[in-house]
């Protein structure tokens, strides 16, 4: 299977796998935090659920939604990464991810970003950056108790 350049960089095995078998794809009953994300340009929609304990640690996180492979895989990988992290750590991860997706830093600049490097390809595709960051913006909104976020 040969794909050229920009799109080859993006559609890697990891992304395709998470798109097909998204992890933590379920709703959480009685979450402590919740937000709906929406990218009107693409029609991508996703809900992010979180349970955060009294020590500010994310003890459970999940998502449900519909969208392109990039947004779905990003949400799926995000849930695997933020579980058991403190809110502070989650914020740092989001910042790093955002900087990588917009080309401000390289994935190698920060060891935390190792498992997110598959998304570094979106920096060459400005129209797709929002797909990759939707889940993270939604998570951020949930933690700030904003219920609806739009990335347009």
């Amino acid at each position: 299977m040969l794909l050229t350049n920009r799109s080859k960089n993006l559609y890697q095995e990891v992304i395709l796998d998470h798109n097909k078998n998204p992890r933590n794809y379920r709703a959480i009953e009685n979450p402590s935090h919740f937000a709906k994300g929406n990218n009107p340009l693409c029609g991508d929609k996703l809900d992010v659920y979180l349970t955060v304990d009294e020590n500010n640690v994310v003890t459970d996180v999940s998502f449900v939604g519909d969208g392109c492979a990039i947004s779905k895989a990003s949400a799926s990988i995000m849930t695997t990464l933020v579980k058991d992290k403190t809110i502070d750590e989650v914020h740092k991860l989001f910042e790093g991810f955002h900087d990588m997706a917009t080309g401000k830093i390289e994935p190698d600049d920060d060891p935390k970003l190792r498992r997110l490097r598959a998304f570094s390809g979106v920096k060459d595709l400005p129209a797709r950056v929002k797909c990759a960051t939707l889940a993270w913006h939604t998570l951020d909104a949930a933690l700030k108790d904003k219920e609806i976020v739009s990335t347009e």
Binding site: L3, T4, R6, S7, K8, C42, A69, R128
Partner: peptide, 14 residues
Amino acid sequence: GVHPHDIGTILDGE
């Protein structure tokens, strides 16, 4: 099962 935006990006690559 494939979102049009993924199709569009892959086609653009071609």
